[in-house]
């Protein structure tokens, strides 16, 4: 994908900051992070564990409040919204979590989990069920899985269901927070293929948070490298991997290949 002025910006993150306090000692998890995403883009966000990647995802999805900064979706501020406005946000942004089994209620079937967002938006039961089956087809999961519980399916199958759930409100942006990290390598490859296909078919924007540069290279149009809460390098994955500018990026590249 080429950068252009006419490309519509879907997400603008500006000066995001988050400080955690542990025993009253401040720890800057996210420090002045700014980046943009254009519609249909797949943006990779790499960095080691604890560098603040997931915190950024949680701030964008309102699961954690930031200490400073703003997040614009289609040019409108999304932060500091409550109630109905906040719920509207979740029809545009969805997230796929790291551990698939933990992201489904152990006492609800996968189908119920996928239908929850539709039921909340006032779909009738029959309508929601039909749409849920379509979503299962889309993520190449057999329809009988709707009745299974999270502990009865494999990690890969569960993550497919999680992707189906994320697709249910027809969002424009999906954040994958280490969505492939808990899966083994062959399943990872299937998952990347699935995400690639869905992204093309539905013109989705993907924010792909990951610590594996190879996966990012395979999937993303652009990559941001994060280190200790700040973005230290960004560019096209091939270039970043071949000509890393920063010492940390070199180290990351060396350990991945």
């Amino acid at each position: 994908m080429t950068e252009g002025e006419d490309m519509q910006k879907i997400l603008e993150v500006k000066g995001l900051k988050k400080i955690f306090y542990k025993n009253k000692v401040p720890f800057v998890a996210v420090n002045q992070v700014s980046f943009d995403m254009v519609a249909g883009e797949c943006l990779g966000l790499v960095g080691e564990s604890g560098c603040g990647k997931s915190t950024i995802a949680k701030i964008i999805t309102h699961l954690t409040p930031p200490d400073a900064g703003s997040v614009l979706l289609d040019g409108t501020e999304t932060l500091y919204k409550k109630g109905k406005k906040e719920r509207e946000l979740y029809t545009k942004i969805q997230m796929v979590f790291q551990s698939p089994q933990d992201s489904f209620d152990p006492r609800c079937s996968l189908g119920d989990g996928i239908m929850e967002s539709m039921r909340n938006r006032g779909f009738r039961k029959a309508q929601a069920t039909e749409r849920m089956y379509e979503l299962l087809d889309m993520v190449e999961l057999e329809r009988e899985f709707a009745l299974r519980y999270p502990h009865e399916v494999s990690g890969g199958q569960c993550q497919r269901a999680a992707i189906a759930r994320a697709l249910a409100p027809e969002p424009r942006l999906i954040i994958c927070d280490e969505a492939t990290s808990a899966l083994d390598v062959t399943v990872q490859a299937q998952m990347v293929k699935l995400l690639q296909r869905l992204q093309k078919e539905r013109r989705l924007s993907l924010l792909f948070i990951c610590h594996d540069l190879a996966l990012v290279q395979a999937l993303c149009d652009r990559v941001l490298v994060m280190y200790k809460g700040s973005i230290i390098e960004q560019g096209i994955p091939d270039e970043v991997i071949l000509h890393p500018q920063k010492e940390y990026t070199k180290m990351l590249v060396d350990s991945a290949f």
Binding site: Y90, T91, M95, S103, D105, P106, E116, N120
Partner: peptide
């Protein structure tokens, strides 16, 4: 703080639900 509670929130469920 389990991911499934966060997922429910992302599905647009309110606190009571």
């Amino acid at each position: 703080n389990m991911p499934y509670i966060e997922a429910a929130k992302l599905s647009g469920s309110g606190t009571l639900k």
